[in-house]
């Protein structure tokens, strides 16, 4: 494994740990942290669905501004929140959207903005429309930016929900909303395992690295990596057996209860939900009218 791969792996692991397991902001005394988790969950689902319905870039920006305002009210520093939202957007969505700015991937002739290359003759390629120039079109840029804005906004709401809510409250909410008990149980346990498995992987890779001298062939590295994945799997399996015994010895009977007592939503929670619904409906109505 190259130095680069080593370094990125450790960074990825640290990033995942930070993203998934940080409950730093969930314990702040901010606006969203004080909203009842059940009401907050439902409100955010409504916001995300409404975002998906929006077509106009202005309405999408309105939704995005609302998420920034909510983050600021919840005392989440924007210089932390915005990069956290944007970090994966270019990789997962940007590259997918990028080709569409070029005329050759569009179904109709668009208005050219920049001509990149003029072939002076018609070129026919399989799957694509015949074309004679490669150009960036206005329609393409418009679609790509609308799409990116929409994805960014939806992701910003999902991340804001997770940042301002403790994981145990999310699990409570899911059981209160009648998700299957076994689903909530497995979700809760899988979340803990991810952390443990990440640590195990890093330890295994380092211990192998510290015993290796010189360059290794790719065949032997594949073989070793296969062994690592296999061993990881076995380790996890044995661990799951031990965990089962540990749970059993503490009185696990297939049911589970939570540490935090379930509280009921109060007036201000319903007020928040009403505001969210009014905001979503009026934005979408404005879009249809305009």
């Amino acid at each position: 494994m190259s130095k680069f791969a080593d370094k990125t792996l450790v960074e990825i692991v640290n990033y995942i740990k930070d993203a998934v397991f940080s409950e730093r902001y969930a314990t702040f005394e901010g606006f969203l942290q004080r909203i009842d988790p059940k009401v907050k969950f439902v409100s955010f689902m409504i916001l995300i669905v409404a975002t998906i319905f929006a077509h106009s870039v202005y309405i999408i920006l309105l939704f995005f501004s609302a998420s920034l305002i909510l983050a600021a009210l919840s005392r989440i520093p924007l210089r932390f929140y915005i990069p956290r939202v944007l970090i994966f957007i270019p990789i997962f969505t940007g590259i997918v959207a990028l080709p569409y700015i070029f005329n050759i991937f569009q179904p109709y002739e668009g208005t050219p903005l920049i001509v990149i290359h003029d072939f002076q003759r018609v070129i026919e390629l399989p799957l694509l429309r015949p074309f004679s120039r490669i150009e960036i079109t206005r329609e393409g840029v418009f679609w790509a930016s609308t799409f990116l804005a929409r994805v960014t906004t939806a992701v910003s709401y999902a991340i804001l929900l997770m940042l301002t809510t403790r994981w145990s409250d999310i699990l409570n909410t899911l059981s209160a909303l009648r998700f299957p008990k076994i689903f909530v149980l497995i979700l809760g346990m899988a979340y803990r395992y991810i952390f443990l498995l990440l640590d195990t992987i890093v330890k295994m890779l380092f211990s192998r690295k510290s015993r290796a001298v010189g360059k290794e062939s790719s065949v032997s590295s594949w073989r070793l990596n296969a062994g690592i994945i296999g061993a990881l799997f076995l380790k996890s399996y044995d661990m799951s057996g031990n965990i089962y015994l540990a749970m059993l010895s503490r009185g696990f009977n297939g049911d589970f209860s939570h540490l935090h007592a379930d509280s009921d939503p109060v007036m201000k929670d319903y007020l928040f939900l009403t505001m969210v619904i009014v905001f979503c409906i009026s934005s979408l109505v404005v879009e249809v009218m305009a």
Partner: peptide, 8 residues
């Protein structure tokens, strides 16, 4: 149940 959680 723990096995399924590990596999997830």
């Amino acid at each position: 149940v723990p096995m399924l959680a590990v596999l997830s």
